[in-house]
Amino acid sequence: MDTKKRTLFIAFSSQKGGVGKSTFTTLAASTLHYRLGYNVAVFDADFPQHSLMKMKKRDLAMVMENEALKKLAYKQFTTINKKAYPIMQHRADSVLEAAQEFANTSSVPLDVIFFDLPGTVNTPGILKALAGMHHIFTPITADRVVMESTLIFTQLLQDVIMKKGETSIETINLFWNQVDGRERTPLYAVYHNLIHQLGLSLMQSQVKNSTRFRKESEVNSKTVFRSTVMPPDERLMKACQLDLFISEFLKIIQL
């Protein structure tokens, strides 16, 4: 009997740039790996920018230059006694095979492999890569162009790829990002109804807008939010309701 634990393949994916897919990949991976005790790896297949590969280099340099962060990092790694999660660069058309090989040969059983995939269906191999995910999470904002692009993309995944049956996809989950808590726009109600009519799944948690999603740790910073080598600060997570998002995320993927 094969008792080998299954490694979940998860992607934050969208057809629209700037909605936070790479940021959420980092936030989720770092929270699960450094704070919650899971073992995580990341494949950066977002050619040509490969932003997560570049982010890790910047994060390591920032820790070495910042005494407060250096102490935080030392305390973290001696407490949890595990290395930073690996981030590997790969092409979208063969990333599934590379990830499966990595999971099979890893000295540490992997709970989740996150994939940062290109934001266009025209990229060679992207639909195959998406079909190989177990769970897909798609950030949306109350912007007409973003919504139109996202709903078309999500329907493509649900109606074409999932219904063909040749897929590993178990759930596709839309979630609100960059929500302005002061704004009472009727757009949210309109889009909620539309998402429901299309039979798509929308998460209950909404991530509030924050400038921290768009910037990394600064030279004199004493806290961390978006980082590949440390988890986001718990107070900052609570301020933008990222903590509620992670709780719902974990329930969906059933780790």
Rank of each mutant, 00 (worst) to 15 (best):
V224P: 02
K70Q: 08
T211F: 09
R91G: 04
L32V: 05
L60I: 00
K75A: 14
G165A: 03
R91W: 06
K71V: 11
G181D: 13
G18P: 04
D46E: 10
Q155F: 01
L244G: 13
Q49I: 11
H90M: 10
I253W: 01
I169T: 04
A99P: 02
L36N: 05
D243T: 07
E248V: 12
P124R: 06
N122K: 13
R235I: 07
G119L: 08
K4W: 01
Q100A: 05
A239F: 01
L250S: 10
Q155P: 00
M162A: 13
P48L: 12
S106R: 02
P109F: 05
Y191D: 05
P118G: 09
N81V: 05
H90I: 06
V108E: 07
I169N: 05
M53G: 13
D243G: 02
R212Y: 08
G37Y: 08
E218T: 12
K222C: 11
K82A: 00
V108H: 00
T171A: 00
E166A: 03
G165N: 04
F47S: 14
L127S: 06
R212N: 10
T79R: 11
N193W: 06
N81Q: 15
T25W: 02
D111I: 10
G18M: 08
F137A: 06
S107Y: 05
L69A: 11
L202Q: 00
L151V: 05
D116Y: 00
H90F: 07
K163A: 09
S217L: 03
A61E: 15
I252R: 09
S30I: 01
Y85D: 01
S107N: 10
N220C: 05
G20Q: 05
D159N: 13
T138G: 09
V112A: 00
T78E: 14
S51I: 03
I80R: 10
P48V: 13
E248S: 13
L36K: 06
F9S: 00
L60F: 02
K16V: 09
E248Q: 14
E148I: 08
S94F: 06
R6M: 10
G181W: 08
F12G: 04
I80A: 09
L250E: 15
S13I: 08
S221N: 12
S205Q: 12
Y74T: 15
I126E: 02
H196N: 13
H90S: 15
I140L: 12
A45K: 03
N173Q: 08
T23K: 10
T120P: 07
N66K: 07
V190L: 06
L8G: 02
T79C: 03
D111T: 14
A29I: 00
T123H: 00
